[in-house]
Design a protein around this nucleic acid. Sequence first.
RNA 1: CGGAGUGUAGCGCAGCCUGGUUAGCGCACCUGGUUUGGGACCAGGGGGUCGAAGGUUCGAAUCCUUUCACUCCGACCA
Length: 563
Amino acid sequence: MKLSKLFAPTSKEAPKDAVLPSHIFLVRGGFIAQIGSGIYNYLPLGKMVLDNIRRIVKEELDKAGNQEVLLGFVTPSQLWKESGRYERFGKELLRFKDRKENEFVLGPTHEEAMVDLVRNRVKSYKELPLNLYQIHTKFRDEARPRYGLLRGREFIMKDGYSFHESVEDMQREYALMEETYGKILDRLGLTYRVVEADSGAIGGSGSKEFMVLAENGEDDIVICEGCDYAANIEAAKRAAKVIDKSDVEMTPGPFHTPGVKTIEALAEFFKISEDFLVKAVAKKAIFEDHEEIVLFFVRGSDTLQETKALSVTGALELVDATEAELEAAGLVPGYIGPDAENVTVYVDEELRDEAPMICGANREDYHYVGYDFKGKPFTYKDLITVQEGDRCAKCGGKLTLTKGIEVGHIFQLGTKYSEALGATFLDRNGKARPFVMGTYGIGVSRLVAVVIEQHHDEKGCIWTEETTPFDIMIIISNIKDEAQRTFAETLYEKLQDAGKRVLLDDRSERFGFKMSDFELFGFPKGVIVGKGLKEGKVEIVDRKTLSKTAVDTETVFDKLMES
RNA sequence: CGGAGUGUAGCGCAGCCUGGUUAGCGCACCUGGUUUGGGACCAGGGGGUCGAAGGUUCGAAUCCUUUCACUCCGACCA
């Protein structure tokens, strides 16, 4: 390809809203261009990267025995109503009607559609297992799209769905997918961790996320320094905190604490560690058919993990409760304790049998000192957010927090969707049973940006070997110099014939301009054909290190073929 | 969805408050020339429904109303 013919408009200026390197360089390098909020066009270079990633994903999945299909992007709402997600998915699901007033959705994920494809077509255990995937556009009407390709509304995802006759077989496939995803990310040249995750709106019994480690990641992940434990903050567990109670004594009873409403104030008032306080977090839980106030109690030094909290309630969402709503429920804001009546109460697991504690007395201006959880029949659940420095539940090692970008997520789904949609097969005994399913996703378009988040410098992109659109860029320093042009064009032809993907910068621009574009594009190798040609020399530039090596014109071809 | 902004040439912006010639500037673009190892220079040139609709006015980019889009902070987010 000749750069003079390539549609790759580069620019010195980045869009003013671009803050992440991937966003800035992909736009400046002419890889992508925004067309609407959270919607991007792929220009030739961006499309090449996307195709590379898509190809790697496909190769590895096919090797693992998966089969590619392509489902309709527009999905009849009926399917979503059958699974119950039409209501549950919320506003992210873009709904619309056709000219006949029939309702449709733009698929944000395709569990329903894939189950529909398989039901009544796969009828016997003999046809199982089956793992079908597609690499397709998705649409989620994100409340706030940002960060370029990292959080768009329209994006490209690989989504796979497996069907099995037993949980054991599904778990075998789940393990195979974990391995396969690892191979894919390795080939892309990414550093990642597999972490335990919350299953969220998809549901199911277990899930893991593939997190690419990056400073600008949106997800907090917990990593153990001592073993391989790693988890999303939303799902992370720790060894129960050990509290030193040696010099704490309390005489049980109510205590007058006027105006002391926060944990900090309470710790100050009693001159005691927050470890001995009970923090009440009140939320309004919204269910499909009603709303109610729910109370969560955690140790004063802990914070509520909202994803865990949401999951124990089974509600659609949790929102902050207003003081008026709390009072209406018979609660006293600032003095709420676990013995509150007529509301649903969840207590953190680590407070089971804990004593002595200080908690709200459910009475204006009073706390209860010396509270004992022993024998209290609360519903105890894991509710806390793991903090930096907590101890690993697996090995006792120190837990640290880091940032990651989610690029893959695998789920042990079970029979949730097959049951809801009535998708069954006949088992070995001739009995109809719902498929046991797994589901597996990779953010293909997100990966385009992720590669850059992990591989860039202040000048621009640095593509990895398998993602780069071109292997080599030949830069003709002075296009008016006949010798330079002839040599470069000959080399260009030769490398192409030898199977290299080569871009020839034959533009009539100045040297500095072309070098800047080379650095911005980020192809692994550059060849500068310039003033050294008179002495029989050209230079090979390594994009990663930006180091230049003078090479004889005789040997440059072989040198380039080596790498 | 709450709060706050911005829409003027491909991009970045000034002009608006205080209405009044032909709406400017930088970059980019086109032509000619000089230049060619780190985003050059000289000369000439093209490009605008001032986001849209309505209103006030002799006169609107500028004032008013409505609307749309985009962005930022937050909430939200397989």
